[in-house]
Design a protein around this nucleic acid. Sequence first.
DNA 1: TTTTTTGCAAAGACTTTGCATTGGA
DNA 2: TCCAATGCAAAGTCTTTGCAAAAAA
Lengths: 152, 152
Amino acid sequence: MSLSNEEKIRQLIEHLKEKGYKNTEARGKMIKVFVEAEDHLKPEDVHRKLKGEDVSLPTVYRSIELLKKIGIIKEISIADERYYELYRFSQKKLHIHFQCSSCGKIKEYDNRHIFSTMLSQKEYIEKNYGDQIDDITIVTQGLCRKCKTKEE
Amino acid sequence: MSLSNEEKIRQLIEHLKEKGYKNTEARGKMIKVFVEAEDHLKPEDVHRKLKGEDVSLPTVYRSIELLKKIGIIKEISIADERYYELYRFSQKKLHIHFQCSSCGKIKEYDNRHIFSTMLSQKEYIEKNYGDQIDDITIVTQGLCRKCKTKEE
DNA sequence: TTTTTTGCAAAGACTTTGCATTGGA
DNA sequence: TCCAATGCAAAGTCTTTGCAAAAAA
């Protein structure tokens, strides 16, 4: 079963406090944005979603840094842009993104079969190289189905 | 069998000319840097390697853009930094990077078994989603063997 | 009250652009 | 020769920082 957004937000704010940081208005609002977005956002996107909520851009950057540090969100670099997305409560710690080099759209492959293969690769690497892998980000690029059709 | 660096450079310059661009000193030197580096470089790294060769930073950026456009190098984003590496002649069009979150070092997993699994995943995605995948970049993060040992 | 967090303005890092000059074919 | 490519300086982005004011605990 999955938690409601309100419950997730509550737990994340609890986590923030446990780590010794203050539960401020700006942080609460940003946590809400990430929980509700269920998507990867640029700092500018977060700021835009908070328009009229009086959260300055420097605060957005500072809070992103903090939320990242305590594991609430994670950073992904795609085509030299930084994106952030909810890390806790994302059942999967593995993200497979696709960016179409024609239309620029980014989507995510959410597929049980791919996931299980990737996780077995992770275990293979950990066993054979001795490194501990906490996070895997896969970015694929190419032509999406729609653009492929157009070009034919 | 693999080509010598000189031969690779020659062929890449040929490719440049075929595409209608001039074979200038700056471009030749940069191609040489990428062929010999066999590693991912930041624009600043390329510039540093050309110290004393009179290639300005704007030219480094402009040439990187060009070499990328004609498929000689490719861009990778790791931990919000842009890197570039040779794309042609890299037998593998698939790169699996690991960045240690403790010491920051970046290495590459170069392993036949992982590669073949990843390529089968690529085919699986292409068949099931209809997208055409030209490039896969995998960035893993965690603790490398050395740092893991230190922390224990 | 005390310490952390915030907004503002300014500074920084990295990247791109305009334009006159140089250089390749 | 003629157009493309380069260097320089300047302008743009995006991101970070110093500091006084405001807000949590």
